[in-house]
């Protein structure tokens, strides 16, 4: 297992220069994510147009994996509707938790770079924090439509 399989250039790049970093004000929905075990914190703010995420930002502090994962996620979900986001989120979770010899799902694009964490079970939570936070933010929207996607 080479370190470069985990810390790929795209992850190091997004850690150093996080995309869509900051806060949308005003926003249509938001959520805070916290991993108490390692202290990673994340706030997501989203603008939603109809059923589609038109803009998203994140801020917070965490390790390279959690920062890069959040940054990559904001790029990937911009312009997607909720159904497409749910599909993508499930694909990411599969990629993060599958066994190391399983094929990485097609269609993940840059997000496939995160699949290296499956060799490091202790780090899966770092990569998935932003996706859990996104689920919470979308479920919270309008208050009345809160649903669990579990």
């Amino acid at each position: 297992m080479d370190l470069k399989d985990l810390y790929r250039d795209v992850i190091l790049d997004h850690n150093k220069k996080p995309r869509n970093f900051g806060k949308l004000e005003p926003c249509d929905t938001s959520a805070d994510g916290h991993n108490p075990l390692c202290g990673d914190r994340l706030t997501l703010t989203l603008r939603i147009d109809g059923d589609t995420v038109s803009d998203v930002r994140f801020e917070g502090q965490g390790c390279a994996i959690s920062t890069a994962s959040a940054s990559l996620m904001t790029e990937a979900i911009k312009g997607l509707d909720e159904t497409a986001i749910t599909t993508l989120s499930e694909m990411v979770h599969r990629a993060l938790t599958s066994s190391s010899d399983a094929a990485i799902p097609e269609g993940l694009g840059k997000l496939a770079a995160l699949a290296g964490v499956r060799e490091y079970p202790a780090r899966v939570k770092c990569a998935s924090l932003c996706w859990h936070t996104l689920t919470a933010a979308l479920a919270r929207r309008d208050g009345s439509t809160a649903v669990s996607t579990e």
């Binding site: 370190l3 985990l6 390790c63 390279a64 994996i65 202790a122």
Partner: peptide, 22 residues
């Protein structure tokens, strides 16, 4: 520049067991 959890993982790949956390 290196978060303690990234450090913990990198050290692990070098066979070094340290605690990273609070």
């Amino acid at each position: 520049q290196v978060h303690p959890h990234d450090l913990g993982t990198i050290l692990d790949t070098e066979g070094v067991a340290v605690r990273a956390g609070h």
